[in-house]
Structures are given as structure tokens and as C-alpha cells.
């Protein structure tokens, strides 16, 4: 792995690269790991784990446009107990730092999961998925109130042996209030944005083209929206911001770094091109050289907003 761009993420430590594989797009199948092993990846985020096992949503789970993907996976996962039991066996093979993503229906559920994760030695952080739009329960509701979201972050941070990342939905990132609440509650980093709630219809069947009424949208089409949110929130919080949404090329990653993201998450497009991290990092290296910048953090210092 190249180590040209050590990335300081505060409580999370120093990553070897600013590139993080986002939740839902990193898997543990060994052949996939072999594809990624030589890539300059700073950390990987697991699929979101819930308290109980989830079978996920009915098919179809995917709907694709030329610049977007709507998924309705429904957080299919084995549940926290099975995850913790099998962590060493499964993630022992992963050569990258691991961040565990969790989502709960209530503050209590988050707390129980955080305590169970304390038994692990491997992860470098826990990411709280406070927003998955596919989950049809009060989880979405408490994500819509700053005080309740702050409570989840506060209790998790208090109980956890690992630094806490608060992952914001686009609605939580529409202004700086949720990020500020997460920061005050003890989050060590903020990541944004999660997928955007979205619909697509099969007009001839008068129904959704997914197995559920709606799903979460990702892909290049979300980048301009997410970029503005990362710009606004990076200016307001003094903890590291991990920016993500629609990164397909090195230039996209550079835009996120320029608006203040300390690290960047790649997801959908890494599924299409597993060699994306190498191509992004080499693009960043050429950019830094071309503009005679000191290092990667210099990219954001050069942004002119006037």
C-alpha cells in the first residue's frame, strides 16, 4: 500500500490514506478482498449491523439511472451477536483498519450494541448510522430531532471504548445543527452524507420499480448536493469530517478535500471499479504536484470563497 498521504483523523488516529470504503459497499468475501488488498485504503466501514438479524427488503433491490443508483437492501445483516462472535474469524483477514457501522431503533438498542462491541479488539471506531432511509420505524424519527440524536451519540460515546463517528443523513446535514449536536455529545468525527431517500416507478405496473416504495439514492448525481453540505458542516465543527457521495474520479475526491473534508468515503463507484482508490490517490498526487501544494491538507487551505 502507498503511504504518501497519512491522514490525521483525530481520535481515530492516523490513517495511511484519506480513502475510506463506505458502509454497505465493503464486503468480506475473500476474492473481493484480494482485489482491494493492493489498494491505498485508509479504512473500511462494515455493512450496518442492527441489534437483531435482518433479512432485508424484497426484490427488486436495485434501480439504476445513468448517474444514480437507488438501493433498497434494507440493512440485511446477521445481527450484533453473530457479528461479534464471528468478528475475529471474518475481519481477522482484513488488512485495513475497520470501522463498525451500527444502527438501532432506540437509544437503548444503540447502547446495548456499543457495549457488545467493546469486547472486540479490532475496530478503530464505531460509526452510528443515524439515518438509513430504508428503515421504516422510529429510527428515522429520532434521527429527525437534534436532542434525541444527540442523546444517542452522547450515550454511545460514554459507553464505547472506541471513538464514535456520527453519520448524517442529507436531512441532518441540511444545516449545521445536527453536526453541532453530535460534536457536543462527544462524537470524534462526522461522516456525511448517507443515501438520499428516493423513488422510482414502473409506470406500466403503476407501482414502485423497487420491492419497497422507496430506497436510498447514491452515485455521481448526489455529489453536488453532498459537497455543499460538507462545505457548510466542515466550517462549523472542529472534529474531522469524512465527506462522501458520488465520488467517481480523483477530481471528485479533490473537491471534497477542498471544501474541508479530512477524509473521503467511496462506495457505489468502488463496486464498479475496485481499483478506484489507486486512481484517486494518483490523481490527488498529480494535483498536489501541479499546484505546488505542501500536502493534502493544503488543498482545503487554498479554497477561495469570495
Amino acid at each position: 500500500m502507498q503511504c504518501d498521504f497519512p491522514t490525521d483523523l483525530g481520535d481515530l488516529g492516523i490513517l495511511k490514506s484519506p480513502i475510506i470504503i463506505s458502509s454497505g459497499t465493503f464486503g468480506i468475501p475473500i476474492p473481493y478482498l484480494e482485489l482491494l488488498n493492493d489498494q491505498p485504503i485508509g479504512a473500511v466501514v462494515t455493512k450496518t449491523i442492527t441489534y437483531s438479524p435482518k433479512q432485508g427488503n424484497p426484490q427488486p433491490r436495485l434501480r439504476e439511472g445513468s448517474l444514480w443508483l437507488i438501493n433498497s437492501i434494507g440493512l440485511e445483516n446477521p445481527g450484533i451477536d453473530s457479528f461479534v462472535d464471528r468478528y475475529d474469524q471474518i475481519y481477522g483477514e482484513v488488512s485495513f483498519p475497520v470501522i463498525v457501522s451500527i444502527s438501532g431503533h432506540s437509544v437503548d438498542e444503540f447502547c446495548v450494541m456499543v457495549k457488545k462491541l467493546n469486547a472486540l479488539n479490532g475496530p478503530i471506531a464505531i460509526e452510528l448510522n443515524l439515518s438509513c432511509p430504508n428503515v421504516d420505524n422510529e429510527g428515522l424519527a429520532f434521527g429527525m430531532q437534534t436532542d434525541r440524536m444527540g442523546e444517542v451519540v452522547k450515550q454511545s460515546a460514554k459507553l464505547s471504548l472506541f471513538p464514535i463517528i456520527a453519520k448524517l443523513s442529507p436531512f441532518q446535514a441540511i444545516d449545521h445543527s445536527f453536526a453541532e449536536a453530535a460534536c457536543l455529545a462527544g462524537a470524534s468525527a462526522i461522516s456525511l452524507i448517507n443515501t438520499i431517500p428516493a423513488m422510482s416507478l414502473d409506470i406500466n405496473r403503476f407501482r414502485s420499480s423497487l420491492g419497497t416504495l422507496s430506497g436510498g439514492m447514491s452515485g455521481p448525481a448526489v455529489k453536488p448536493i453532498s459537497l455543499k453540505m460538507v462545505y457548510e458542516i466542515s466550517r462549523f465543527v472542529d472534529i474531522p469530517v469524512i465527506g462522501m457521495g458520488g465520488i467517481a474520479y480523483a477530481d471528485d475526491a479533490i473537491e471534497y478535500l477542498m471544501v474541508g473534508a479530512r477524509a473521503i468515503g467511496i462506495g457505489t463507484m468502488n463496486l464498479v471499479n475496485p481499483e478506484l482508490p489507486t486512481s484517486i490517490l494518483s490523481g490527488i498526487a498529480s494535483f498536489i504536484k501541479r499546484h505546488k501544494l505542501k500536502d493534502i491538507t493544503d488543498i482545503s487551505r487554498q479554497l477561495k470563497t469570495g
Binding site: 459497499t25 464486503g27 432485508g56 433491490r61 440485511e76
Partner: peptide, 20 residues
């Protein structure tokens, strides 16, 4: 229909007698 083809995204899960 698949998004990744690599076993990562769970977009192509089917139901079997031993689960998804």
C-alpha cells in the same frame, strides 16, 4: 440484477431454504 457481482452489496439476494 447486480450492483457489484462481488458479494458485497446484497442487491441480488434470493430466498432459499437456508435463508437469503
Amino acid at each position: 440484477k447486480m450492483a457489484c457481482g462481488l458479494g458485497v452489496c446484497y442487491g441480488c439476494t434470493i430466498t432459499t431454504l437456508s435463508g437469503g
